[in-house]
Design a protein around this nucleic acid. Structure first.
Lengths: 218, 218, 218, 218
DNA sequence: AATGAATGAGCATTCATTCAT
DNA sequence: TATGAATGAATGCTCATTCAT
């Protein structure tokens, strides 16, 4: 124990500590769910003393909120990057790439999808998490609006959420063919429908209108 | 005391007891989530002795499973009825009625949507619940397949799931106009896409294919 | 541990269990104060598992209340007995015996005096304990009213309370001579004062008037 | 940051800091009891950094002691003033004024009575507080000795302590009529008792005899 | 078969105290 | 000298589960 002093004494980097704990909480949520998030589990995962998890956060709720916000922020950064690298996409290209992204998630970033699902369910009981849920949805819509009309974007995001949920909750994830089929069905322009007036302008997320994307909400 | 035995016994057939407890567990999940489901809460809600909740169910997991299965079964009955009363619907009619059903849920049967969301998230950690999640999805698809092609049905169900989740998790539920718009965007036949071979026949839910709808799984 | 089974399995004597725990809580309060009363300390003192202290009492407050009520009840029984054995006493005899009783308490039943003091201070923050404090006072007054007029009785009880407090809180307990002197000063009839109308009849403890001595209050 | 040092330093003379903290601790004890006294609560109440409460006092016990000593000192000053303004009082006048003072306390300076009670109970477990308890008692006796013989003074102080305790701990404070009646019963000279040699001279508080009133004891 | 008393591991949280800065 | 970040033991309490009755 004496030889660990050097490691233990790495004190006085408060923001780093908070960051470590938040990241650990995020991993715990992805791995065991909010139900499995305990101060002890977070402390162990982060490699910090138990007290560190209660000292830096007022309560368990704050810890959950911080972890989920981190997740939203990473998702925002991921989408920004994704969109920036694909400035122009036809609906068919978008279909294929989106399906690929969703399918990739089934294996690689399952944690992201799990965390998103946990967020939605947690937000049902914890109103303070609802703005984060709003952001998760709005981020996806904003991204898709770069390629398709707003209504189609919303339809695609809702379906992508449903697919994501199914991917993590069902006995087997949907096949690539199904995902692609569903997304193509939604994203392909429909000549039978008018392009405009899809949505009344005030029908889109009034609750989060006055919040910038990464704004702290506490 | 001994002479009261006769009165105390046989008050309930065992199956009725199980039914009461299961129903109480379902209500608890809708009201407080799986997180809030405890043996004591269920016993109190059901008006049965504490022991009844542990005697008839092997553990908390079984109780959760039974409650969620009951929810699936009620959903199945609801859909059967809904479909039976509406033998023929145009896509536009389906759009309006489906939107109405979803919107009604935001107020009236919020419990159903909440329970469904709880099921999906619980199924992430409890593999034994996944067949129930499968069923929830498949029930919706089967119902919509009466009116539209299978791919469109799947697309609509995925979007409806996303909308449902948003309804219970977001700061504000989606407006009727938005819900209708999204569903119309998906359900309206798209002349630009072929009607047939939307999906390869083997891509649909292989995991639950050999399970009848109401089959017990334990 | 295996050989303790016999002892451990002495289950299903619920009232005895409650009694054991209550008695242990009383001893803890006398020995370490309410501040030192913890579920773990009580469990250890009673020789019962930790869960027994939280199972039989809704919360720490209830445990404290039960312990202090027990103390009041024992005090009531002690006074009943004391009075029954001394049907007639002159003021001088009462002075001597009361002083003896108080002095004896300084050594023998210090716990009683300590507990009484704990009760008074706890009642300042916990209104549910105030009826117990009322009873403690009223019991003493009722007992002394057998020998002297009500006002003298109240004066003597107030002074006895002060002496008792001093006995447990001061550097040194008051001497027997002082205690006797003070009590004699109060108990000896004062020819300069009228015997009657000492108190308006409604001025005496209206809060506890309608409570019998041992009544449960919860 | 370095250049702000000059501004930050010397904001307070150390003694003023100690004074602020002590005063805050006193207020906390009156408001929440010793049980509710924590370093953080005191620091917040005093408007000083948390470290100030641990830097200037060796431990929580010292902080409590300092706060209670402050209370004793204020009580001493109050009594000095009270006595100085009332050089001569008949027993009847003393009765009325003392009753008034006690009754006033039930509403106005309840904090004083609460603090005194906290002190007595704390002194049971913390021997270092006993001299303070001694002083509290002795101050009252000394004051009353200006007007009545020492034994009567002691009797009245003991009764006043009992009344004070009852005022803060019982369901209802004693009525003014009762307080006056009790004090009159005690303070009125009793022709049936000799005036002198009420107490042997060595029976009075030997433990604190050699301590001046305001002496530091640490 | 049915009950609920009993258990103890585990939980979130508080807090006096330490000590690097 | 003065601060407040950091620690971890300890607290009240919950609860799934066991099992004597």
């Amino acid at each position: 124990m004496a030889d660990q002093r050097g490691a233990k004494r790495r004190r006085y980097a408060p923001e780093q500590r908070v960051e470590e704990v938040t990241a650990a909480a995020e991993r715990i949520i992805a791995a065991r769910g909010i139900e499995g998030l305990t101060h002890r589990a977070v402390a162990e995962e982060a490699g910090v003393p138990l007290g560190a998890t209660t000292y830096h956060f007022a309560g368990k709720g704050d810890l959950i909120q911080a972890a989920l916000r981190r997740s939203v922020e990473r998702y925002a950064a991921y989408l920004d990057d994704w969109v920036a690298q694909r400035p122009h996409l036809t609906p068919e290209q978008l279909t294929v790439l989106l399906a690929d992204s969703l399918m990739g998630g089934y294996a690689a970033s399952r944690g992201q999808q799990v965390t998103e699902a946990e967020l939605y369910v947690a937000a049902m009981r914890r109103p303070e998490l609802r703005p984060l849920a709003d952001q998760y949805i709005e981020l996806g819509v904003d991204a898709l609006c770069r390629y398709v009309d707003p209504l189609t974007a919303r339809a695609a995001v809702m379906a992508a959420n449903g697919l994501s949920l199914r991917a993590v909750a069902a006995s087997e994830p949907p096949s690539r063919a199904e995902v692609e089929g569903i997304l193509r069905r939604i994203l392909t322009p429909n000549p039978a429908l008018p392009d405009t007036l899809h949505l009344p302008p005030d029908a889109t997320e009034p609750a989060t209108r006055n919040q910038s994307r990464h704004q702290r909400q506490n």
